[in-house]
Nucleic acid binder design. Structure first.
Lengths: 155, 155
DNA sequence: GGATATATTTTAGTACAGTGAATTAAAACA
DNA sequence: TGTTTTAATTCACTGTACTAAAATATATCC
């Protein structure tokens, strides 16, 4: 039943999704980084990763990951370091300049988001936070569902 | 000042952004449609568009758009129709099966979102809706900012 | 310590989406 | 009606990211 009142949240969600994706693409173009590479960057942001771990995480062959790291390194966004515990491994981590280049683009957005947050009472902000946290959880679950379905379909 | 309490909204926003993008990518892979083509699909969803309008909107050459429509058409997601008013033009519109294929993937997500919405009182839902609407507006504005900056940088 | 296994890189080849220019068809204009 | 403009497609080419497999370097295991 499209158009029902309770679907307003869904439609809003779709709009939000589109807006997020378009912003993301704009950031990528601005940094000169492809959409695929950005996924890697997001992972690396969470902490240094070995090339192999990265390959596994994003579903590419080791050779492809080498090229990807090359690109990101050339752009000054990440840095290779030899793993002291296992010198075959490299650890890929964010560079300071990479973080700030990225953050720089987000600064205005972050400022606008903070400004907006002041519109709400603490209680309202708590509701919003709760909503966002739950939405993230749902999205992650649904992403996993799709990914798994696809993988099982492939084999 | 990273880590401050008022940045919680920003960090949550980043997580939400990543989750949305990853979900979007999963949907694209599932439909066998590249990320770029999905932008076109989103535009077409809003109503039939001529090939030229599509080219202008997504910043590709007419030749590239022809190929893109070919791909989407081969996937059964869109349909070409000759514009009755100007027979040089074609209008690209969503197919029923394209809509349902797409919606199908979103159905579970939509259901989960609706289920989550029931957790909130009407007043809380109003706050959330307001938040989402404002966030979308901010994202669109920031996207435009980045896009313009990039274009001016290019010339 | 030497054989085997593992991590990354390198290399050669492939696939594909993009550009720019030529082509075809229809509309607009004078 | 004939010329010019506009819309989409086709064509030849290019750039780039990918895979698979070989090469290199280090770790692990008897």
């Amino acid at each position: 039943m499209p158009g029902m009142a309770e679907d307003r949240g869904v439609d809003l969600g779709r709009e939000l999704s589109t807006a997020v994706v378009m912003f993301h693409e704009a950031v990528g173009q601005h940094l000169g980084v492809s959409a695929g590479d950005q996924r890697a960057l997001a992972l690396i942001r969470g902490g240094p990763l070995s090339a192999g771990a990265l390959a596994k995480e994003i579903g590419l062959t080791p050779g492809a990951v080498t090229g990807m790291i090359d690109r990101l390194e050339a752009a000054g966004l990440v840095r290779r370091e030899v793993d002291p515990n296992d010198r075959r491994r490299i650890l890929v981590g964010s560079t300071d300049s990479g973080i700030s280049a990225h953050s720089g683009l987000f600064d205005e957005l972050a400022a606008a988001m903070r400004r907006m947050a002041t519109r709400y009472t603490p209680a309202e902000q708590a509701v919003i936070d709760d909503y966002v946290v739950r939405t993230v959880a749902i999205l992650r679950g649904q992403t996993e569902r799709l990914t798994e379905r696809k993988q099982s379909g492939k084999r």
